[in-house]
Amino acid sequence: MNTLAAAALGLVIGAVLGALGGGGAILTVPALVYLLGETAQEATTSSLVIVGVTAIAGMAGHARSSRVRWGTGAVFGGVGVLAAFAGSIANRHVEQHVLLLGFAALMIAAAVGMLIQSRRGEEPALDDPVDTAPVTGTDLRRPGAAGLVKVVVAGVAVGFLTGFLGVGGGFLIVPALVLAIGMPMPAAVGTSLLVIAVNSAASLVARTGSSHYDWAVITPFTLAAIIASLAGKRAADRLPPTATTRGFAALILVVAAFIAVHTLAG
C-alpha cells in the first residue's frame, strides 16, 4: 500500500517540480512524514535520495542544452560539502519536533521569497520552463570580494540545510549564482541542480551506517517524480508563471502552518 501511495505522491510532487523547478522538493519531507508515516529523520534521509536523483535527471536535460557550468557548480557544491556533513550529524542529535519546526520555518522563508519575487514579475526562482536556448560564451563577471563572500555563505548555508533538513536549497543557489557572479538564469538553474546533487550525495555519505532506507517508498516515489516532472514542465509552458508561483507559495504556507500547529499541539 505504501508503495502505491509513494508513487502517487511522487507523481504529484514531480508535477510540481516540473512546473516550478526544484522548489517543489520542499514538499517531499512533509509528504513522507504525514502521509507515509516516516519519522522526521527517516523522511529527511529519504528526501535526500529522491531530491538528489531527481536533480541528476533534471541536470541531464540542462546539460544537453549547455546550461550547466560544471566548474562553478563543483566549487559551489564543494564549499557546502563540510556543511552538509555537519548538517547530517546535527540531524541525528535533535528531536523530531525541532526538525519539523525548523522545516516549517524554512518553508515560510521560501514562500515569502517566492511571493516577493512574483511581485517583481520575475520567473520562478528555481526553474526556467520557457527559455530552452543553450547558453553560450562566458557567463561570469569578475566577482568582487562581496560577491565571493555571498557565494561562500550561500554554499555553506545550502550544504547545511541539505544535510539537516534533506532539502535541495535551490531557492538559495539560483539567486546566489545570478546576483553574486552574474550567471544567466538558464545556466543558474542547470548549475543549481549540480550543486543539489553534490550536497545530497555528501549528506548521504555522512549518514552511512546510521540511517534506514525504505526502498519500497523511495524507489516508486523517485521514479514517479522524474516521470511526472517532464509532464509538469510541459504544462508550465501554458500557465502564467506569476500566478503559478503565488499559488504554490500559498500552498507552502498552508503546509508550513499545518506542520507548526501539529508539532506544537503534539
Rank of each mutant, 00 (worst) to 15 (best):
R207K: 15
R207S: 06
R207V: 10
T208N: 03
G209L: 12
G209R: 03
S210L: 13
S210D: 13
S210C: 12
H212Q: 15
Y213I: 14
Y213S: 11
Y213N: 11
Y213P: 10
D214S: 15
D214R: 13
W215P: 02
W215Y: 09
A216I: 01
A216R: 03
A216M: 02
V217Q: 01
V217E: 02
V217M: 03
I218Y: 09
T219G: 10
P220S: 12
P220A: 15
P220D: 11
F221D: 02
T222L: 12
T222S: 11
T222P: 10
L223E: 02
L223I: 15
L223K: 00
A224Y: 04
A224D: 05
A225C: 06
I226F: 10
I226M: 05
I226P: 01
I227D: 03
I227N: 04
I227P: 05
A228P: 10
A228L: 05
S229W: 09
S229P: 08
S229L: 04
L230W: 06
L230S: 05
A231L: 15
G232I: 02
G232T: 01
G232E: 02
K233W: 11
K233F: 08
K233A: 00
R234Q: 15
R234A: 10
R234I: 13
A235K: 01
A235I: 13
A235M: 14
A235S: 02
A235T: 07
A236Q: 03
A236S: 12
L239F: 10
L239M: 14
L239S: 07
P241R: 05
P241A: 01
P241T: 00
T242L: 08
T242W: 14
T242G: 00
A243W: 14
A243I: 14
A243Q: 11
A243D: 01
A243G: 00
A243M: 14
T244W: 01
T244P: 13
